[in-house]
Design a protein around this nucleic acid. Sequence first.
RNA 1: GCCCCUGUGGCGGAAUUGGUAGACGCGCCUGACUCAAAAUCAGGUGGCCGCAAGGUCGUGCUGGUUCGAGUCCGGCCAGGGGCACCA
Length: 897
Amino acid sequence: MSFPAGRRGPRTAPNTADELDMQERYNAQEAEPRWRKVWDEQGIFSSPNSDPRPKYYVLEMFPYPSGRIHMGHVRNYTMGDVVARYKRAMGFNVLHPMGWDAFGMPAENAAMANKVHPKEWTYANIAAMRAQLKSMGLSLDWSREIATCDPSYYKHQQRMFLDFLKAGLVERKQSKVNWDPVDQTVLANEQVIDGRGWRSGALVEQRELTQWFFKISDFAEDLLDAIDTLERWPDKVRLMQRNWIGRSEGLLVRFALDPRTVPNGESELEIFTTRPDTLFGAKFMALSPDHPLAAAAAAKNPALAAFIAECKRQGTAQEIIDKAEKQGFDTGIRAIHPFDPAWHLPVYVANFILMDYGTGAIFGCPAHDQRDLDFVNKYNLGNIPVVCPEGQDPKTFVITDTAYDGPGRMINSRFLDGMTIEQAKEEVAKRLEKETRGNAPVAERQINYRLRDWGISRQRYWGCPIPIIHCEACGVVPVPVKDLPVRLPDDIEFDKPGNPLDRHPTWKHVACPQCGGPARRETDTMDTFVDSSWYFARFTDPWIETAPTDRDMVDEWLPVDQYIGGIEHAILHLLYSRFFTRAMKITGHAGMEEPFDGLFTQGMVVHETYQKADGTYVTPAEVRIEGADDQRRATLIATGEPITIGGIEKMSKSKRNTVDPDEIITTYGADTARWFMLSDSPPERDVNWTEDRVQGAARFLQRLWRLVRDASQVSKDAPAERPQEFGEPAMALRKAAHRALSRVSQEIARLHFNVCVAHIYEFANAFGEALDDAAARGGVTPDFAYAAREAADILVQLFAPMMPHLAEECWAALGHKTLVSVQPWPEVEAELLVETTITLPVQVNGKKRADVTVARNAANAEIEAAVLTLDAVRKALDGKTPKKVIVVPQRIVNVVA
RNA sequence: GCCCCUGUGGCGGAAUUGGUAGACGCGCCUGACUCAAAAUCAGGUGGCCGCAAGGUCGUGCUGGUUCGAGUCCGGCCAGGGGCACCA
């Protein structure tokens, strides 16, 4: 660092302030690259597969190479790195790899917008982001780096697709997509805005395409049951997955149809219900617009056909379907109540019935289901309550706008009256099971899952090609394994809408591997969730060319001991990976059931937003903030115009409230960015990026540096041998050091990094005071020098996982010739954590009135006696005799008056 | 709409999982050092009453369980995440 010439004029003698400043300041810009070079040269972060030590696999969700890392990455990877460095110090062979989730839509969007090839764009982004990640000082084994868009990766994915196909885990079936009729292309849900294509603005319609599916629903029961074994997953994620899989027990009921009303002689309608108890409250039947009976009826009814077409103009997103007004259309078909041949129910087509769930048809009991109630109220079909809540008079109980779905007794239900819901369900099932129509029972018990099969076909270029050939003679033919990978062609054009693979002049035309005749390749590529469903397994041996995994290595390293990533992946990515692991086990590519033993989901990085008078957003870098609290005012630096300070929101390009990690690292250094990310906010919660707190973090770095240098002065003459006796100041310092060591170790293991940070602050404060006190006493005794050296070593090791560059610099300043990054974690001396006396708070009737200090092992009776003599307690009791005294050992005393 | 989470000083948050609410940090105030500023250091900092000792209220709102509730239970309010083709 140098000052601009002439700023202070020529200097002949050291000018105290600045000279000291230069000596005392830790220069992160200079030190950080220097230490990274040392780590690199010594290769200390590579984890050889041959290492005999116990293994620990820590993994952060790999990034999409969007072009630059963002603060969310900094947070995610810092947390993982702390765990990796800590576990390494604990003696584990740590696997901590990094790669790129490199297929996906943004590359194609960039290709269309900027005329750049997706491959070039992606690899340039990877290069830029790799450099950025390296500047963070992460302890990664870069020799294992993978990119999912590389043929050396997707070749194995194609191989597994073929193996899954052979094992019966893959099938082709029809499913719906969002279709843009102008761009002639399939749209992702996020590309549909208010029912219109984002680019064309055309009204989107649903289209049926034949697509490839992984049969994840075959595993529904196992995926659900095994959630119980995932003890190191957050409860909320486990709950979300349980709900997603959505197990429900119910009854499949075959309703007879009135033959006079059916279009083509259909005789019955099969429905699934979880509430057979409410059969006597039925008011209508409803079919999904995709139901075959609906299609049959529509063939003879143009108005119905028009209604069904209208339903199909809704997007495919669940949210749209749920929020849409409940609408239906009477098909004219009449169903016959299973318990009363004279009771006929109208059969509607309704926009809120899904073909994918159950049988795509229901009976509606409006009194006890809100959607059904909304529906009957719209079409004036009325309702009959059949469950009466406790304490309600059945004669006066009516339903108007709010359905009742709670417990109660059956009413208006003939032979069910008076039963509980459970009894009624059982009774209905028993009766209908016994009854037969044709050769089959009228009803059977069934367990249903909400989980649908995983559609993996994407009509896009930048994804893993599905290794299938379509032959007119032989049908669907798998690509022979020896012909893998099916490579993406490089010569493609994005000037026209649609899938470039489909219109490529030569790529799709091949000879059939079976008959040799002319055939064409599958032009759909795989969902990018496939890529990320097994990358953690590939990391265990990314070099093997002959198979997706090396069985010994994958079984050795997996499951991942600690997986860290965003909560937004709580369901899909994690469920797909769990499915994939099972499928890989069946096909012999892995041996375990579950991929992730421990899971941690971190919160987002958020920041204030800033808006100009016209509502456009400006970035934090363009804004100057003055004043504090409610006096804060913002102005645009360039023009001085006033800026409105808006809400704190997730950092996003659209709100322009992003802070570039590069700038922070350039200005303050990686350690400051890392420390900030770990401080204050609990890792599972959102963290608000504020400039003040970044500066606070930067200041603390300097303080640590000064503290360690001061300590090194005090400890330089410390005896090599541990003294027999420690005086009071030395003992106090040792206790503080070991208490901090114990707490920080415990909190790192629990991933409570913000609490670690607080304990490190606390210890640094205590250490600083101890050194000041020693200076005030004048002269340092050998026992204190020894304690100071021990404390300094512990302090540096405690913050080393979080600020590794500074830690190396400090470690060297303390005279060590080794790297702190490879030091074993210090051991706590348990006896230093034990106090001989303890101060307990004393409450009277639950309000704190005093403290009492007693021997740590004092008997309850002793404590009780001591408490009752306290002035404050006597005053609070006001002469009354206490009813009882509750002594909670080591915690609190409560006197009940 | 459905599922899930969160709510504590001016701000980020801590609280050993039912036992002293506000650790630690940021900000702010006062002082030291300086010609001055920055940096650094020392002290203070939930509200209200009080010179003080101390008292009293206080963990989104509301009701309950308990000797004792930020923590457990019921009802509400507000903010956020996911909803199957964004990754």
